[in-house]
Design a binder for these strands. Sequence first.
DNA 1: AAACGGGAGT
Length: 568
Amino acid sequence: MQFLKLPRLLMPHMRRIHHSLQPMPSQTTYKFDSIDDAVAIFHRMVEMHPLPSIVEFTKILGMIAKMRYYATAINLYTQMECKGVVPFTVTFNILINCFCHMGRLDLAFSIMGKILKWGCRPNVVTFTTLMKGLCVNDKMVDALYIYDEMVAKGIRFDDVLYGTLINGLCKSKTVKPRGAIQLLQKMEGQLVRPNLVMYNTIVHGLCKDGRINEARVLCSKMIVQGIFPDIFTYSSLIYGLCRAGQRKEVTSLLNVYCVNNKVDEARELFNVMIESGEQHDVINYNILMNGYCLNNDVDEAKNLFHMMIKRGEQPDIITYTILMHGYCLSDKVDEARRLFHVMIERGLVPDVWCYNVLIKGYCKINRVDEAMNLLEDMFLKNLVPNIITYNSVVDGLCKSGGIMDAWKLVDEMYYCGQPPPDVTTYNILLESLCRIEHVDEAIALFKRLIFERSFAPNVWSYNILISGCCKNRRLDEAMNLFNLMCFKNLVPDIVTYNLLLDALCNGQQLDKAIALLKYQILEQGISPNMQTYNILINGLHKGGRPKTAQKMAQHLFIRGYHPDVYNQ
DNA sequence: AAACGGGAGT
């Protein structure tokens, strides 16, 4: 826990911020066409006599860091220091930021020592930058610890620091928006008031997590405080509602239909936004259009497309991609292709994502030849296909019976490496073998890949093989695979368990299925889903145990499996 | 002078 030394190091300097020793301001501004230009100017400056002021060097370092050439910035700094240029706090802040983005928190924190050694004083930005470094490197626990320490010492923070922490909390895998809301509550005793940016960050985080109702509650709280939603707030909520609507579930327990009516709510909100004179932009349209597309309502998406043009909003490449995707989802690939050409006629240049959507669309309707043509087209246009492009094609080839061709392509990827195959690529191959009931081949391939190509199977890989075994009534082998994956520290997911439960039910081993649910699934805190439910209830009914089925239904209901909770 | 906080798609 080397980071925890920080507060003691920083605190004496946080109370007052010194300006007296700062270099004089300068009016020079720089503009570079490329990183090479920036480096060239920097090199020239280092050779000048007398040396330019540190401010000039710092400006260029800052720009290089903005261009994300972190290692370059650090390298140039070292050269500069060797030439005898004396750095100041801003220079160090830039270095800290660079190290943080490179994932080198240790070096970032070591700059603190350097700052003191040079007789400089860390300022609020130094501290915020380090906090951000902890956040983006998923060290939220350390960040919060330092925050608490400093609050306890009576040090005040500005709104940017709170914004940084809240953003970090929302994005972290472990803490999530809940922690951000708690931080918001902690702010109540402080001088800094929550502002629109902080609320928007949390609202967005909640919406992304599918917690649309909590997002709405937070919005009302914010309005009560006199902070009113803006275009960011609306777009997050619209996005959240569209996502919430994606889940269509029917439960056999209560026969409740959770129809996806949330897109309509998203539309209502969208209309409110427009009618209230709030500004709107392409992104808002894109989000709502995507919502319609994912709900198989590409027609309504198209209507919006026309509406946005009528209202003077220029569709961008993402608008077209979303619409094309919508058409592909309902197998209208030709329509998507037509749109593709319209887009090009209107002067937009298709990117890799655009091609990926079309390629995947053609593969899905078994027109792999068209997909291959598009792949050729990409090369002609100097677009570099990515792993998603290749995986779509590999999948398409497998599904249209060209497993040998798929293999050839994967080998090319493996030996030429641009990009090399990933887990998904191999999973596609394994799945295609299982689909045509060649489970033995699949398992042999699986072993060979691990041995020869250092293939690191994931949960999905095992699920594919387990599914293959189960379909062929090879329950023992499925169980072996299950044990193997546990042995390799892979955590089986609900899909794995559903496969096993289904196999157990089909093999008349109902008691084992119930034991699996009781002692493994629930015990490990894995939430059963819709399918788990159907498998067990149907299995018990078929096995002539309606009473147990009834009890099971109640049990799962009590365990929190019911439509409302499930849809959260 | 300069470093730190918020939105979309395979």
